[in-house]
Every structure is written in structure tokens, then in C-alpha cells.
Design a protein around this nucleic acid. Structure first.
Length: 428
RNA sequence: GGAGGCGUCGCCUAGUCUGGUCUAUGGCGCCCGCCUGCUAAGCGGGUUUGGGGUUUAGAGCCCCAUCGAGGGUUCAAAUCCCUCCGCCUCCGCCA
């Protein structure tokens, strides 16, 4: 949620932001009107409530008939107080409903427009020229099957479409990637975390995942809990309703967890292999910092993501995501997209968002300052996931015989092997 | 799964049975001041959070809410009732 005081002070700024997102700027006026009604109703309620309280004191002191007379007199007032309170509450609810539909105010400089209006900030590395090398690259599923690493057929048998097994070097690759991601995150000063993957509705809503993308989320009806699609949710909830101490610098966490996504509305998209799946593993970085430090922390998260991709020796590019593709809580987002040879394009591998105070306001995470408390800023970024980096590694580092080169940085996490070789998959 | 107990403004705590004088008691810690070669002690004051109003703004002042959360009863709720959350104890079950 954005700061209503900011909206009151400069509604045009919020309208502009909404327009950049391709969303309704009229919500700003709905908020302003409901806010005005709320404040008027609140003043009335508070006045009569004060009157009622004062009256209560005389009632307490009165005795006998005098008391009965006072009681009869104050009944009307009590009813009015109740009604005024309800009116104020209704206006507040209306205001909040409109507020919740307004996305974070986008950072100045973010490209205007939708999904395709991103700006490429940099391209790193050069995609291999397989034609020049004299062979046709295999796709990740074919390679994965040759290596005995990926089994989507049995995944579908057991759990349905978009589920898979990672076996042998496939499973080892996932562990190695998470190991590398955690090692780098810890080297960068992040506290390693194992976090809940089932959270309460308040946490899910607070992190901003029940607004536009509510149908992306798995819900356990019987327990009223949600399966998280990223540990960002649990890390955002970690300090909910707390006053955190940022005097020694930002709080930085890195959690590795399984992520669950319904992928509703993506029917027919990326159906082959393990590019778009319902379940994967991810190491997520999360930062709590002072609002004025957020841009710098965002750059830092991007630098770390690049450090990870550099370590995997992948060709990739960095894009500045356009306003319309940000998602509600983000004020700015950078995606790192790796080159996928058999698709002939760059695809998102990691992503980092600056949510400024949007998430923390709803989750009520504050810091103490000389003049009171204030809402902190939160940022998040992918260190690594399991599935897409496996795809990128297999495809980019494949050799003509189906073996796969292992980047040096990953070898310590794979028992020192420098090459993955085709095997007969177990049970095939 | 069953039974019971508990949750008070940083920490501890009084108040809840018997609703009003609670503007929530006291202690510890912390902050400011006084006293004082220095320190300690002592003395005085302050110390939840959010919102609204007043104000150019801040300070100050006034008001409302806040006793785990939400609802209810009542002229009036920390106090009575209901639901939920959390913690603890015992029993059962599983390891």
C-alpha cells in the first residue's frame, strides 16, 4: 500500500504512476473523496464519543432517580455514537479498498508501457554459434533425458502436467545451484534462512500476493493457509508488526525454499520440459533498509545476481522492466535473462524488485528515528532458482556428444566433476 | 486428538471474581535535570503505538483509538459473553 499522505500531498504523482502502469488513475480520486468523507465522519464520531465519555463520568457518580434520568438521556447519544462510528468505518473501508488497488509509485525513469516496453541495460557474454561449431543444439529436455537428469513423463503420472522429477545429476545440479547461491549470498553478508512455505492469509496479502495474482497461488482450504510461490513472502512477514533496528545497516536475508505456483492462465505456454512448472526451488534474497538507501540496495542486489550468472558462465542481458509489467508492490524491477539457444531468445532467470515502503507499510515493519517511527523499505531478488538455470546450463554448455561442461564455480558443489556425461536413465 | 491455565503501554507486574473514582499500579531498564572532586547513591521529571484536529511548517496543545486480534452485551468493558491467534501444563497418539 502506498502512503496516503503522499497521495494527498501530490495526487498527480500517483496518477502519473498509475498511467505509466496502464492502470486506472481514477482510483486516486476515489481515494481522495473517500478520505475526505472519512475524516469528516471521524471528526463527528470523535466529538460525540468525547461527549459520551464525559457523560459517563456523571452517570457513574449519580445515584438513584437522578441516575435513571441520566441513563434515559444518554441512550440517544449512545445510538448516535454507534451510528457515526459505523459511517466513519464504512468510509475508511471504501478508502482502503481503493488504496489497495493502487500499485506502488513507480520510480522515475522506469520505462512506460507493458511487457514489451522494457529497456535493455546491458548484454553480457556472447551466445554460442552452434552452426559455426557444426551441430544442432539439443533442447534441455532431450539433454536432461540423455543425462538421466529430468523425467517429465513420470512427473505428470504422479502429479500432473508441469511436474517433473530431477534424478541423478539433475538432482545434484539443483543442490549444487542452491549451494552456490547460498555461498555467494552469505559471502555478501546475507543471513541464511529456512522459512515457512505455508503462510496465513494476512502474510500473503501483506506481501502483496493476493491482489492481482490471487489465482496464481495455491490455497489449502481446510487450514486457510497459502503455499508460497517464493520465500519473499515469509521473509517479508518475518518482521511484520515489528520495529527493526537498522542502525548497523540493512537487514539482509537469503532463504532457500520450494516454491509453488498454479500457473493459471499460462495454458499452452512453455509446455515442454521444465521451463514453467508448478514447483521449483529458489534461493531468494530479501533486504530491509531505510527508504533513502533502497535504490543503492537495489543496485547491490542486481550486482549480486550478475555475480551469480557470471559464475555460471552464461550469456545474459539485464532489462529495466516497464511500469506495466512490474506487479503491484514493485516500484522498479530489473530482470536478468539468460540466452536459451533452442528458443533463440533471452528468458528470465532472476529478477530483483525495489518495493520501497509498499510491502512494509501493509506488514507494519518500522524503524525508530529521532522523531518517532517510520516505515522501512523492502527489496527482493532471486539469487538462483533450480529449473531455469538448469535449462540454461544444459543448453549453453552442451557439447556435440550430449555431454555438458560444468562451470568452474559449480564444481566444488558437484564433487569436483567438470563434465556431465550421458547415461542410461535408471529404470528406462 | 482431549482437558486445563495464561496473554496488561521495552521487561516484570497490580487491576479482571464484584463493569464506572483506570486519565491502567508499582518495580526494573532507559532518557533529561538537580545534587556532587569523579562515579555510585539520592531527589525531581519523562518514557506504548496509531489516527484526527489546530498550525505556513515544526513544537506545543486538544480529541479519539489502543490491555493478544476481531465481534457482541451495556449509558459505560482491561474487567462480562462469543470466535480466532499465540504460549504453557497434563493426558493420549506418533517418533
Amino acid at each position: 500500500m502506498i502512503d496516503i499522505r503522499e497521495l494527498r500531498a501530490d495526487p498527480d504523482r500517483v496518477r502519473t504512476s498509475q498511467q505509466a502502469r496502464g492502470e486506472d488513475p481514477g482510483l486516486v480520486d476515489q481515494v481522495l473523496s473517500a478520505d475526505e468523507r472519512h475524516r469528516a465522519a471521524l471528526a463527528q464520531f470523535e466529538t460525540s464519543r468525547a461527549e459520551q465519555k464525559a457523560f459517563g463520568k456523571t452517570v457513574a457518580q449519580a445515584q438513584g432517580e437522578e441516575k435513571q434520568a441520566l441513563l434515559a438521556q444518554v441512550k440517544d447519544l449512545a445510538a448516535r455514537v454507534k451510528q457515526l462510528e459505523a459511517e466513519a468505518g464504512a468510509a475508511a473501508e471504501e478508502r482502503d479498498a481503493a488504496m489497495r488497488r493502487i500499485g506502488n509509485i513507480v520510480v522515475e525513469g522506469v520505462p512506460v508501457g507493458g511487457e514489451d516496453d522494457y529497456v535493455v541495460l546491458e548484454e553480457v557474454g556472447v551466445p554460442r554459434d552452434f552452426a559455426a561449431e557444426g551441430f544442432e543444439p539439443k533442447d534441455h529436455l532431450e539433454l536432461g533425458e540423455l543425462l538421466g537428469a529430468i523425467d517429465t513423463v513420470r512427473g505428470a503420472k504422479v502429479s500432473g502436467a508441469r511436474f517433473y522429477y530431477l534424478l541423478g545429476v539433475g538432482a545434484q545440479l539443483e543442490f549444487a545451484l542452491m549451494g552456490l547461491a547460498q555461498a555467494i549470498a552469505q559471502d555478501e553478508g546475507f543471513v541464511p534462512v529456512v522459512a515457512p512455505t505455508l503462510v496465513r492469509p494476512e502474510t500473503m496479502a501483506g506481501a502483496g500476493f493476493l491482489d492481482a495474482h490471487a489465482d496464481e497461488v495455491y490455497r489449502l482450504e481446510a487450514d486457510d493457509l497459502y503455499l508460497t510461490g517464493t520465500s519473499e513472502v515469509a521473509l517479508a512477514g518475518l518482521h511484520a508488526d515489528e520495529i527493526v533496528d537498522l542502525s548497523a545497516g540493512p537487514l539482509r536475508y537469503a532463504a532457500t525454499s520450494t516454491c509453488y505456483r498454479r500457473e493459471a492462465g499460462s495454458y499452452g505456454k512453455d509446455t515442454r520440459g521444465i521451463f514453467r512448472v508448478h514447483q521449483f526451488t529458489k534461493t531468494e534474497m530479501f533486504v530491509y533498509c531505510r527508504p533513502e538507501d533502497a535504490p543503492e540496495e537495489h543496485e547491490n542486489l542486481l550486482r549480486i545476481e550478475r555475480r551469480v550468472l557470471d559464475a555460471l558462465e552464461l550469456p545474459y542481458r539485464v532489462i529495466d522492466v516497464a511500469a506495466g509489467d512490474l506487479g503491484g508492490p514493485a516500484a522498479r524491477k530489473f530482470d536478468c535473462e539468460a540466452w536459451i539457444p533452442t528458443q533463440g531468445k533471452y528468458r528470465e532467470l532472476t529478477s530483483t524488485s525495489n518495493c520501497t515502503t509498499f510491502q512494509a507499510r501493509r506488514l507494519n515493519t518500522r524503524e525508530r528515528t529521532e522523531s518517532g517511527t517510520r516505515i522501512v523499505a523492502t527489496l527482493n531478488g532471486t539469487a538462483l532458482t533450480s529449473t531455469r538455470p538448469i535449462i540454461a546450463l544444459l543448453e549453453n554448455h552442451q557439447q556435440q556428444d550430449g555431454s555438458v561442461y560444468v562451470p568452474e564455480a559449480l564444481r566444488p558443489f558437484l564433487g569436483g566433476v567438470d563434465e556431465l556425461r550421458p547415461v542410461v536413465p535408471p529404470g528406462a
